[in-house]
Write a protein that binds this DNA or RNA. Structure first.
Length: 195
DNA sequence: CGTAAGATGAAG
DNA sequence: TTCATCTTACGG
């Protein structure tokens, strides 16, 4: 079975990249220690997609989505939450993969402290929660390259297509018919397993 | 300028 | 189901 490098994946369009990012680990070092989580749920957003921030074209906020794949796109929403995306595709295409949920691996005490809760399964089972676990409390990392503050590491065990469930995206009102949400079947850290 | 909506989360 | 909370984008 072929294994893709992270460069391979982020150069693809977001719909192709989103399922391939499942099982990858996202990490961040901090003075207090390193946190690491396994990505278990993703969603693809594309420029031609009415539900995407890039649909209206380049703005100050969405500019990173139009960069070459391999950067972060971080946005603020609902007056209180930050969400993390991996930008994909070539320069000029407004594409990104939203990281919706992850399984805590390392630095669990740090993440519990950042989240203010104790239950493992509620630590990062949602995009805002995932950002909190990574210590993201503003948008300064938006547009930065992977591998600087935030890094991705290859899956420790391979993910096969049969492990992946596909469905409609969460929390949007436009283009809900697009099956661009991907998650690991049966994984307890997925945000909304039933959809 | 004024304002409505939003890729959410937590509590009731 | 409701509400907290505020940036962004768009209309005037």
């Amino acid at each position: 079975m072929h294994r893709y490098s992270i460069q391979d994946i982020v150069s693809m369009n977001s719909v192709s990249a989103a399922p391939l990012l499942l099982g990858w680990q996202i990490s961040r070092r901090a003075p207090e220690g390193t946190v690491r989580l396994k990505i278990v749920e993703t969603e693809a957003y594309r420029q031609t997609d009415p539900a995407s921030h890039s649909f209206a074209g380049i703005t100050k906020r969405t500019a990173p989505m139009f960069e070459a794949g391999g950067r972060l796109y971080v946005y603020f929403t609902y007056g209180m939450h930050y969400c993390v995306n991996i930008v994909t595709g070539p320069t000029g295409e407004g594409e990104a993969v939203l990281l919706r949920a992850a399984e805590p691996i390392d630095g669990i005490d740090i993440m519990k402290r950042r989240r203010g809760i104790d239950e493992l399964k509620n630590l990062a089972n949602g995009p805002g929660k995932l950002a909190q676990c990574l210590g993201i409390t503003d948008t300064v990392l938006s547009g930065t390259l992977l591998g600087v503050e935030i890094s991705l590491e290859a899956p420790t065990e391979s993910v096969s297509p049969s492990d992946i469930s596909i469905g409609p995206r969460v929390g949007i009102k436009k283009a809900i018919e697009q099956p661009w949400r991907f998650y690991l079947s049966g994984n307890p850290y997925v945000s909304k397993p039933w959809r």
